[in-house]
Simulated scan of single mutants.
Amino acid sequence: MNSKTKMQNFFDSKYENIQYIEKYEENIEFFNNLLKNGHKEDIEFVIPIKMYHYADPLNQTGNYSKALTVLNEIEEDIEKLKGQSKRYNQFLESVTFLKGVCLARLKKYKESNKEFTKILKKNPTNDRYINWYKSNKKNEIDRLFWIFLILGLGYYLLVLILQFSGLKIENVILREIGSAIALLSIVGSFAWKKLIDKQILKLK
């Protein structure tokens, strides 16, 4: 049984994510050599293992930055197959999806949606891609409204402190503007996210 067969048998078997990561890293020189030699069959052999049993487990175990680095490497590896392999488009779509997921988990929502936009243009009805895209949009909204919520609550607490210290604020607008901003932030965030859920994506 040659090395490639042994590796294929291992990665085709059911293991924990950490075991896949450790096995790949123990044999990283072997896999890198196969990628460097440029043979289509060797690249097609390594890419699924590197993508699904190394980069994805890194992502699943919270090693997002490392996973993103590996996914960028895989993108370069896939380009070697352009015009040579029928699996090129499949590999490219998969790595783009995983990059989008990884960037979302790093809270880089705009960058993540750039990746999802690429694959949604080709697969506009894919629910999985649509859900990730919309989730990123909602997280961006949350981030924006969270700032207003904090500012509103901060102002409201400041007014309370001033009132407890004996300084009365007679102007109703000045007194209540903080709570109004906080309330509008909550309502605005909820309403905007509902609109995103109902939105039919039209990607340029």
Rank of each mutant, 00 (worst) to 15 (best):
L81P: 04
K194Q: 13
L184Y: 15
N139P: 02
G178L: 09
S112E: 04
L92G: 04
E76M: 08
H39W: 04
R143Y: 12
G83L: 02
N63Q: 03
Y155F: 15
K121S: 06
K4Y: 06
E22L: 13
V187K: 10
G83N: 06
R105Y: 14
E115C: 09
K134W: 05
E176L: 14
S3W: 09
K40E: 08
L58K: 05
I21H: 00
L120Q: 04
F148C: 11
A182H: 11
K114W: 01
E75T: 06
L158G: 10
V95K: 01
K50T: 03
I177R: 07
I161H: 11
F97T: 02
L68W: 00
F31Y: 11
F190D: 02
S3E: 10
E16L: 14
K108H: 13
Y88A: 01
Y52D: 05
K86W: 01
I141H: 13
E76Q: 12
L98H: 04
S135K: 13
Q60V: 10
Y129H: 02
K137L: 13
I18G: 04
N17Y: 15
K6R: 11
N136V: 09
N63G: 03
G152N: 08
N139A: 09
W192H: 12
Y20R: 04
R105E: 12
N27I: 12
F190M: 08
Q19V: 09
N59G: 06
L92S: 05
T125L: 13
D12G: 10
I181M: 07
D56K: 09
V159I: 13
E44I: 01
K82N: 10
N59C: 15
I161P: 07
N89T: 06
E73I: 02
Q19S: 14
I181P: 00
N37D: 13
G178A: 10
T5P: 03
K6H: 04
T96P: 04
Q8M: 11
K138A: 05
S94W: 00
A180T: 15
L98P: 01
L71W: 01
F116L: 06
R143Q: 15
N136K: 01
I18Y: 05
K193I: 14
V187G: 08
L98W: 09
F91D: 01
E76P: 00
V70Q: 00
R143L: 13
K99S: 03
